[in-house]
C-alpha cells in the first residue's frame, strides 16, 4: 500500500474546492463536467472537446447557450481537472499494483 503524500493532498484540496465549494454552476453540474458523464448538449459537446481535443476548442464552443461565462469557466476547469484526476489515479493504481507484487512475501 502506497502512502499518501503532500502532492496528492494538494491535488485533493483542489478537487474538493472545485466540486464542493461555492460556485456559480450547480455542484451537480460541476460533478458531471468533472466526470465527463450524464451531460446533455450543448454542455456535453464542450466538455468532450476539453477532455478529448482541447486544441480545437474555439471561442464559439465556449458560447454555451443557457450558461453564463462564469458557469462556463467553472465547467471547463472541472472537466480539465477531472480528466487529470483520472490519469493521476490510473497511474497511482498501476504503481500500487506493481509495488504490491514486488513486495517480499507477496503470493502470486
Amino acid at each position: 500500500m502506497l502512502e499518501d503524500d503532500t502532492k496528492r493532498a494538494a491535488h485533493r484540496a483542489l478537487v474538493d474546492r472545485i466540486l464542493t465549494g461555492d460556485g456559480r454552476a450547480a455542484a451537480e453540474q460541476r460533478a458531471r463536467a468533472f466526470n465527463d458523464e450524464s451531460l446533455v448538449p450543448p454542455v456535453s459537446t464542450l466538455i468532450s472537446k476539453i477532455t478529448r481535443t482541447p486544441v480545437r476548442v474555439s471561442e464559439a464552443d465556449l458560447a454555451v447557450t443557457g450558461c453564463t461565462e462564469d458557469e462556463v469557466f467553472e465547467l471547463v476547469i472541472c472537466a480539465a481537472v477531472g480528466h487529470s484526476t483520472r490519469l493521476y489515479e490510473a497511474g497511482l493504481a498501476a504503481l500500487a499494483e506493481a509495488v504490491s507484487e514486488e513486495a517480499p512475501g507477496h503470493a502470486s
Binding site: 496528492r8 477532455t51 476548442v57 465556449l62 476547469i77 480539465a80 481537472v81 490519469l87
Partner: peptide, 15 residues
C-alpha cells in the same frame, strides 16, 4: 503529480 498538474494547465491553455 507533474503530469496531473500539466495535463490540466495545457488543456485549460487551449480551451
Amino acid at each position: 503529480a507533474v503530469c496531473a498538474a500539466f495535463n490540466t494547465t495545457s488543456r485549460l491553455a487551449d480551451a
